[in-house]
Design a binder for these strands. Structure first.
Lengths: 221, 221
DNA sequence: TTGACATGGTGTATGTTTAACACTATCGTT
DNA sequence: AACGATAGTGTTAAACATACACCATGTCAA
């Protein structure tokens, strides 16, 4: 039992986990087994431990649900309206993470919870104010695509220029001219050719590229 | 006395209050009268009440220290490293506010605390991790100047084009070409001429402008 | 009254960036 | 050897950004 002279809110870390799969931007949701909003889908998240940094808590949740480590994770926004959780005052520090599709192999859910990837334009009804959180994460992602090298966080170590272009097209939801895109992405000076190429299907093999500074997200022009 | 089954952190809202004064970007600090970091300067802030929204808490702190209402206020980031406050685990949701210099008339400090405006490049040593918070707020302000109409939040209802230019120059810390600036700022289509002009000093009077959508911060190109 | 001072206000020319657009290359398969 | 499929490449025009200098209009003092 812990006691305080004045009331304290609970603080949780929730994570919007994005990946690109089947040509769509998707995010991870968990079906709630417990009391409020039982049966509804919600963002992965949990209480911040009393001696745990906020980002640490977010990474812990991320790893518990996906098994992945070392991916891009950024604080998004803090949601704390009174009444957003019917049990007690809960303030949630929301994060968003970007996972390259290669790393995906959903860990077997611990508590027999249902876990699933949902396309952004086909989300189920969400628990709490999680729809608001998802919307904000999506806005941030789209905005940051324009002025940073965030997109590379969705790609494996080696990738083709077409792979990169598809990431941009899927997130922006619009077609991009191939020649202009290649000129632009190479001019950023953030990726470089490798000696390898990828051959698949009955067509000319594609040159593979790698990012020059893996793990870094640079701010561009 | 309030009881919980597991430990809860305290949550505060701190505000970085910016204004432009004497040709400098300045922010408001309070000299701590109480125990940890006594005598050091700190950001205005305080505990989020249990039934109070986060932004509400930030506005309350802002008004308590400056007396101003209705100014630009935006959530900045949440800082929650364990140990950032020696007393207990304190998570702070930081906001930043922009105040037009006209509105300034520092309210007489309630607890005989010392309150003061400091230029960003001449800050005293700060309590807690407030230097980190200030740095992040400054970065956000500089960045947002480029892609939003934030700058108008520093200006009074009526202002000259030179006034606007000075806001940009002071925040960016660089001179801007007058003709190019005027073409650019007018092309944004966010301000309009009034019939009034301002006469001061022995020179041609300047035309006064107003923002078309007061209180709105637009995202630009 | 006129000249000096101080800030307000304006346009053009050049370089840079972005946008539109279509064909050849290379591989695998039949 | 021809076909299907994706890889890869350059030029032109339009829009935008940058550099740059002088006249306008008020006040004040001689």
């Amino acid at each position: 039992m812990y006691h305080y002279d004045y009331p304290h809110p609970a603080v949780t870390a929730d994570v919007v986990i994005f990946t690109i799969r089947d040509g769509q931007l998707k995010l991870l949701l968990i079906r709630r087994a417990a009391k409020p909003y039982r049966g509804k889908w919600a963002l992965p998240g949990g209480f911040v431990q009393i001696d745990e940094a906020l980002e640490e808590a977010a990474r812990r949740e991320l790893e518990e649900e996906t098994g992945v480590t070392g991916v891009y994770l950024e604080q998004l926004y803090t949601f704390g309206d009174p009444g957003r959780d019917p049990r007690e005052r809960v303030i949630t520090v929301a994060y968003y993470a970007l996972i390259p599709s290669e790393k995906l192999q959903l860990r077997a859910a611990t508590d027999a919870e249902a876990v699933g990837w949902f396309a952004l334009n086909d989300l189920p009804e969400l628990a709490f104010d999680h729809a608001k959180i998802v919307e904000k994460a999506h806005q941030r992602l789209v905005a940051k695509l324009d002025y940073s090298t965030l997109a590379f966080a969705f790609l494996p170590k080696r990738f083709t220029l077409t792979d990169v272009q598809q990431v941009y097209e899927i997130i922006r939801q619009e077609a991009i001219d191939k020649r202009n895109f290649r000129k632009w992405i190479l001019a950023l000076d953030q990726i470089e050719e490798t000696e390898e190429e990828r051959r698949d299907g009955q067509h000319r093999p594609a040159r593979l590229y790698r990012v020059k500074h893996p793990g870094m997200v640079a701010i561009i022009k």
